[in-house]
């Protein structure tokens, strides 16, 4: 008898968050590098304030995607084969494992992406549009999607020698709907339009990734053991 689906997913998420909290890699290594990366454009271009403001949103999403991939793929790379085997023998549902891992990665990624907003506002002298708080659920939806995509990409490339380069290559093109949905939501806000269409794009992308992750979890686990 193993724990139920949501209980198992919660236990796996708690494990990953605890590991992240103790290693502190996302917040003490990845985040500072992301801040430095966001600073490069203002430093290198010596651009006018108006140009910098136009660059702020694209640079933010680009950095969120690149450093988000680092956060998510790092989390999936942590598990050893022995640990995966021991987990399988507890009777853990692989779909619950996917849900738990994605949940934890999504939370860490949302924290990194949410915090990254502030240095971008400062470096680019960005003026957030009215109703900018609506971007909070957008960032959460984008982070959830990237987390599921990263967990899937990590599981697909498990055991491959070229994993470190292959997983981001696999993830980046599939992240286009997520980045597009998030970036266009902000553009719509700036233009004073409704963001509902782009939020729906994000929701549909997330649902598709969740379905893909849950349905492929068993097969991917068998390969990884």
């Amino acid at each position: 008898m193993s724990a139920g689906f949501w209980r198992s997913a919660g236990l796996i998420a708690l494990r990953d968050l605890r590991v992240e909290l103790r290693s502190g890699e996302a917040l003490t290594v990845v985040f500072p590098f992301a801040v430095v990366a966001s600073w490069i454009a203002p430093l290198a271009t010596n651009a006018s304030p108006l140009l910098l403001r136009d660059l702020a949103a694209p640079v933010y999403w680009l950095i969120t995607l690149l450093f988000g991939m680092m956060v998510v793929l790092r989390q999936t790379a942590l598990e050893t084969r022995a640990q995966r085997r021991a987990l399988a023998l507890t009777g853990l549902d692989p779909a619950a494992r996917f849900a738990g891992r994605s949940g934890a990665s999504g939370l860490v990624l949302a924290a990194v992406a949410g915090t990254l907003v502030f240095p971008v506002i400062i470096f680019y002298d960005y003026r957030p549009p009215s109703g900018a708080w609506l971007m909070a659920p957008v960032i959460i939806l984008a982070a959830a999607g990237l987390a599921m995509l990263g967990t899937l990409a990590g599981d697909v490339t498990i055991g491959l020698r070229a994993r470190t380069s292959l997983a981001p290559l696999l993830m980046a093109p599939l992240a286009v709907p997520l980045v597009m949905g998030a970036a266009q939501s902000l553009e719509s806000l700036v233009a004073g339009k409704s963001i509902i269409t782009w939020v729906l794009v994000l929701v549909i992308a997330d649902l598709g990734l969740a379905a893909a992750g849950v349905m492929s979890a068993r097969a991917l686990e068998e390969i990884s053991l």
Partner: peptide, 20 residues
């Protein structure tokens, strides 16, 4: 098959709870 960042107690408790 232990997680290095977790304590021995947390490792074993996780295994127990996942097993129901």
């Amino acid at each position: 098959a232990l997680y290095p960042d977790l304590t021995l107690g947390e490792n074993l408790a996780l295994a127990a709870r996942l097993g129901g």
